[in-house]
C-alpha cells in the first residue's frame, strides 16, 4: 500500500524522498512556485510554494513528503500570503510589464495573475540596476532578476559551466557573472545553454527572438500558470496538449535550433 499525504482533503500518494511539491505535481495539484523547477536542486528561496503542514508553514519545494502530513495549499490565507510575497518581488525590482518583452510569457506575471494580484501594495524601491547587452546572443536585464537562482543552477547542473552566481545580502543581493570583466560576453555561455532559457522573468532574454508571438496571444494571456505548470512539469493536468499554444507543444524536443526557441520555451527541452 502506497504512502499518502493529504492536501486540502485529497489523499495524494508519494514515494520516499519526494518533496511535497513533487508529490502534488505528480497528482495534478498545483502549488504556486517560481524558483522550483523539476530536475533542479531545490532552492527554497522564493517562498511562493509556502504551504501549511500540520499547522506550520514551510516551503513545499524543499519539505519532504512524509506519512501523516495534512497539508493546506489552497486557502484564502495562503493566497494572500503568496500575493504579498509576489508584491514584494515586484517592488524590489523594476518590473514594468508594458515595456518588457517577456510580458505574457513571464512566470512572475503568471503567478501574479493566478493570485489575482491587482496592485503592488508596497512602496516601490526603484533600485538602480544595470543591463548587460554585451553578449551577441543573450541579453541580461538585472532590473527583472528575482534571484531565483535557476540560471545559477542551470549553468552548474545542466550546462557544466559556472556562468552565474548570487552575491551580496539583503537589498544588496545581485546576480553576478563569472568573467574577469563581469560581462556576459567574456563567459563561455552559449545561446543553447539551459541557463540562457531557464529564467522565469525577462531578466535573461535571447536576442533577435523578441515579439515573435504578439502581446495578447501569449501563454498566460489565455492559460492560468496552474494549468501550464502542471502540463509542463509532468502532472496529470486537465489541459489537453492541443489547447496549448504551439510554443508549448515543442517542449521536450531537445535538438531545436536556437532560432526556433522562444522565451516561452524556457529550458523545457533541455532540463528534463
Amino acid at each position: 500500500m502506497s504512502k499518502t499525504i493529504n492536501i486540502d482533503g485529497q489523499n495524494i500518494p508519494f514515494s520516499e524522498g519526494q518533496t511535497i511539491i513533487e508529490a502534488a505535481t505528480a497528482a495534478g495539484v498545483y502549488i504556486p512556485h517560481l524558483c522550483h523547477k523539476p530536475g533542479y536542486t531545490p532552492h527554497g528561496s522564493c517562498k511562493l510554494c509556502t504551504v501549511n503542514v500540520n499547522g506550520r508553514n514551510c516551503s513545499a519545494c524543499t519539505f519532504p513528503a512524509a506519512e501523516g502530513q495534512t497539508v493546506i495549499n489552497n486557502s484564502e490565507e495562503l493566497r494572500h500570503d503568496r500575493m504579498r510575497i509576489t508584491q514584494m518581488l515586484f517592488v524590489e525590482g523594476n518590473h514594468l510589464c508594458p515595456s518588457c518583452e517577456k510580458s505574457g510569457n513571464c512566470q512572475l506575471q503568471g503567478v501574479a495573475y493566478h493570485l489575482n494580484m491587482l496592485d503592488n501594495h508596497f512602496p516601490h524601491f526603484y533600485p538602480l540596476r544595470e543591463v548587460d547587452a554585451s553578449h551577441p546572443d543573450i541579453l541580461i536585464d538585472h532590473n527583472r532578476c528575482i534571484f531565483c537562482t535557476l540560471c545559477v543552477r542551470a549553468s552548474r547542473e545542466k550546462d557544466g559551466k559556472s556562468v552565474f552566481d548570487i552575491s551580496g545580502r539583503g537589498i544588496h543581493k545581485h546576480l553576478i557573472i563569472n568573467s574577469p570583466s563581469g560581462k556576459l560576453k567574456d563567459t563561455n555561455i552559449d545561446v543553447n545553454d539551459c541557463a540562457a532559457h531557464v529564467c522565469p522573468t525577462g531578466a535573461i532574454l535571447i536576442k533577435r527572438t523578441g515579439y515573435q508571438v504578439p502581446i495578447g496571444q501569449r501563454i498566460y494571456d489565455h492559460h492560468q500558470i496552474s494549468e501550464v505548470a502542471l502540463n509542463e512539469e509532468g502532472g496529470a493536468g486537465s489541459l489537453p496538449a492541443a489547447a496549448l499554444p504551439p510554443s508549448l507543444e515543442v517542449a521536450g524536443q531537445g535538438s531545436l535550433p536556437a532560432a526556433a526557441l522562444t522565451p516561452s520555451l524556457e529550458g523545457a527541452g533541455h532540463g528534463k
Binding site: L96, N120, R129
Partner: peptide, 18 residues
C-alpha cells in the same frame, strides 16, 4: 480607483527613475 499600469507602479514614465 487607480486606473492602469502608470497609476499602479509608475509605468512608462517611471523609466526615468534610474
Amino acid at each position: 480607483v487607480a486606473v492602469g499600469a502608470c497609476a499602479i507602479n509608475g509605468g512608462l514614465p517611471a523609466l526615468r527613475n534610474p
